[in-house]
Write a protein that binds this DNA or RNA. Structure first.
Lengths: 205, 205, 205, 205
DNA sequence: AATGAATGAGTGTTCATTCAT
DNA sequence: TATGAATGAACACTCATTCAT
């Protein structure tokens, strides 16, 4: 019932933050335990159940909330960059390093395509709140800022959004597989990706 | 060392097939149980442990094996298509429908980026067997067929491979998020994607 | 560190008592199951793991605690006997009958010399708590009461302690092997043992 | 059916030897597995079941057989020693060191007083074969050699046998508890024990 | 006779969830 | 409202035993 719209209570925030921290510490979201979460949050196990109906809700809402906060933050930061190229480049640079803000967002994108219970919760939340995944929302806004409202058909907007998201995932995968990549090689790679995105946006719009 | 190279024994195959079937039935790979797997495979629980050291190995090897088989099959099928555009389009078409061969491959790509135990197993297998993920291997081969060996620098080849993979993932996500999309809308989307891929390949190579 | 020093909580006591009861019912300590123990203790299986890290700890601590309690009780009882002969005789008499308090102590002595996990736990507890096995502690105190502190060299004290303990074990074995022994025959045996002990104590001290 | 009386077949001997070796390697008799035993014996798992009805029989018979062989060997060796004192002293010296022939015999004595299945098997074998535990048999023979047949009442003979056995156990326990004991200290201890035994034998006989 | 692949009953342990305080 | 002790269902994994070859 639109829980997503209210400002979370301090206890809820504590849970959200705990999940984020655990994730940043390298935990596997699928094997997080309630004890770990509430322990990290500094509240009692029973208390968590006053605010969430079960473990999956804790994690799903935490992912959603955190991804949203991070996206808002990144969005503000990106405003300072002039060109689309620079904006994209900044996002890619932010993906380097083991665990980053960005990877939390990416994680959420990933989880969306599990068949896990958390995944189904996230999808339900998306439906219910009529909000898209924060990452998608951010990229869409970025595109609208760039191209002006209503220039694009919804289809093209969807395409371009996903297109950018996929490039970002792509860079993430490259970083994983060839993490020995030296910085100058990474720079070339980022350049190819950013130019690819810009080209595509021009082409489509 | 290189267990991946041997032809799997009938029992191993039974396990692999069972995991595939369960996945096709919508199971969450992270909450598969050994009892489910061996039950579906029609063998005793203990028997599985004669061939695999633990549950994670069963699932990881099953994913790897199945993805490989499917990729080989798709690769053969793609040979019949003349142009890169048609090849890509066929891959995308194959992704439609709730559970498909392709989505099994995509699943494996996903799992690779969990922090789950299965994920770590897959990564170890990749290292050890010195084989890439089947999906990557297939796309790379496709590109080499298209452009001829050694025209591309390894960097560009990696980039293009990931680039295509991420587009495919992207289409998968679009299908999920807006699955109400009517067929003609999907067709437009596929067209944009395939053209995007072709454009990129030309541009880079 | 020194968990042995605290008064056990009610749940811990329930576990200790359950192990004792099961042992009295003739169970093999090596094949006790957690389900049996917690069932007999009247608590949930999970609860036991709030107080003990694993099954072996349950059994080892139970043996230690029970043996200690029993030894304290016997020690008080023995104070009423005047002579060493009478004290020893009382201990031997207490050993008759299939399952007795004494046999619980003996059991612990036995377990100490397994290579079982429980055995290693007991030995570790002995080290850590810097307390000897309750049976040894009791006999040593008995000897000190008899002979006065510091009359004996530590070596001789150790020797005499073990000497008595081994006689008691010996009587236990005789009872097992020739349990058809009529009472008057047993009495003669006890007499020989007690006289042997007294003779030895005099001789050595 | 008196299986104890026949010379064991080569496969049986292999099992017996395997159990002995495993024991010498520090295995806990309670957690030996059939796979370990047959593996060490170099025969198939199924084969073992042609000769033994179950795991417990394997272990019980192995203990009995091995203890018997060892006792015979020790008995022959002891003949070379002139006095009872020297014989006893030799036995004690043989007990030093972590795992020894002697400790195998002691182990059997221990197992006899478990409530384990193996223990019950051993007791049944003792009954059925009308043979005592090898260690007891050996000590009894030793005493008869020393004192001549039929000087002693059966009761006194039993007492003295157990008396010696208990001293040996006693030394074993001392070695465990104070294994830091320097050699000269151990020598004193052995002296006390041997003199104790001799004194007792004289006294009683 | 000898084997070892196959089995599944049995066990230790975990952890989401509840509820008395 | 907040807690965490208590719970027991659920699960991975082991291993004695069987039986087809």
């Amino acid at each position: 019932m639109g829980a997503m719209n209210k400002t979370p209570s301090p206890k809820e925030k504590a849970i959200y933050q705990a999940v984020l921290t655990l994730f940043e510490e390298g935990a596997d979201l699928n094997s997080l335990t309630v004890a770990e979460i509430t322990g990290k949050a500094g509240i009692g196990k029973g208390t968590a159940y006053e605010y969430f109906s079960d473990k999956e809700e804790m994690i799903a809402k935490a992912l959603f909330y955190n991804a949203r906060q991070i996206c808002l933050r990144i969005y503000e930061r990106l405003k300072k960059e002039k060109s689309l190229y620079d904006k994209m480049n900044l996002i890619l640079i932010k993906m380097e390093g083991q665990v980053t803000e960005t990877s939390c967002i990416i994680k959420m994108v990933h989880v969306m395509s599990d068949n896990s219970i958390v995944s189904r919760r996230l999808q339900a939340m998306e439906k219910e709140s009529e909000k898209e995944m924060p990452a998608v929302e951010m990229l869409r806004r970025l595109l609208l800022d760039e191209l002006g409202e209503e220039v694009l058909s919804p289809e093209k907007l969807s395409y371009l959004t996903m297109c950018i998201l996929s490039r970002v995932l792509c860079y993430g995968m490259l970083l994983r597989d060839e993490k020995y990549m030296p910085e100058d090689s990474r720079e070339k790679m980022r350049d190819m990706i950013c130019r690819g995105i810009c080209r595509e946006v021009e082409e489509i719009s």
